[in-house]
Design a protein around this nucleic acid. Sequence first.
DNA 1: AAGAGGTACAACCGCCATATG
DNA 2: TCATATGGCGGTTGTACCTCT
Length: 296
Amino acid sequence: MVRKPMSSRNGEAAAAAGGGGAAEEKERKGLWSPEEDERLYTHITHRGVSTWSSLIARQVIWFLDLTRLALHSFHCAGLRRSGKSCRLRWMNYLRPDLKKEPISDREAETIISLQKLLGNRWSVIAAKMPGRTDNEIKNYWNSRIRKRQSAAAGAKGEPAPATVMEKEPTANAATVAAAPEAASPPPPPIPARLPMFSCQLLDGGGSGGATATTQSPPNAGSSDISEVSACGGNGGGEDSSRDYCFSGGDVDGDGDMVHLLALDDLDLLVDVPGLLDVDAWDCELYRADYSTSRAR
DNA sequence: AAGAGGTACAACCGCCATATG
DNA sequence: TCATATGGCGGTTGTACCTCT
């Protein structure tokens, strides 16, 4: 599904152009190389520490939008990319909460019905489909659904059926068809590099370590705040292997540590009393191997 | 085996809305 | 209030990969 970044002609040319000389200051375009992804990730990692903390200190809720961190000083990261490009790369590819598996039959039906209801408001549709980007949905619609519907309409004079995925090759689709609800699809492949937060309550935090937990499964229909339970103490998050978006609590015995996987779920912190006591937390971004949920 | 055409997807473009100074 | 910068969105394009002949 996700085509690996490659050294396209465009990319190589751009890289060569950016390699030195007068072209050094030119903005790069084209596909992102793994090195650029790495730099963007590293930049977010390092800049995220101070920026995030300082924003928290100002009690600005918007700190939750990590995208802004990426945009702050991309030039300093050696990325001769526009802010827009960085944002797009982050939003459509690097964001850790993105689903990596192909769009399922069920999701396709959702797209069809929502498109019928909302029109081409892809961002609104994407907002109702956790883990999917507007770009992804838009591409999916344009490349598959619309063509099939128009073809079917042309052939039969009627709209194409909702099940338009006969070509979908994956076991995922088969699984969903066989047991739509009971199916427990394998965890989606998680990219090796995950920008994750680690927030540690300093000095025990005084309150014994408030945590917030949520157990949003990969295919949950919503990431609404209503699905979230916030609690005090160190009790939450023991089922970290199932925590798709958020693993809270002292899951690894390293103190009052909270691990966040999905940026959206940073919003949860707002609802936890005392959690935004900025002086109580030491936050950092770190790499993570999600298979263990605790890589450093 | 090789070339042509099709498909899927990443990324760019241009416009508009909002924020900031 | 105005000018500029930034962010968000939908439309479109470019191209790597796949399939067919």
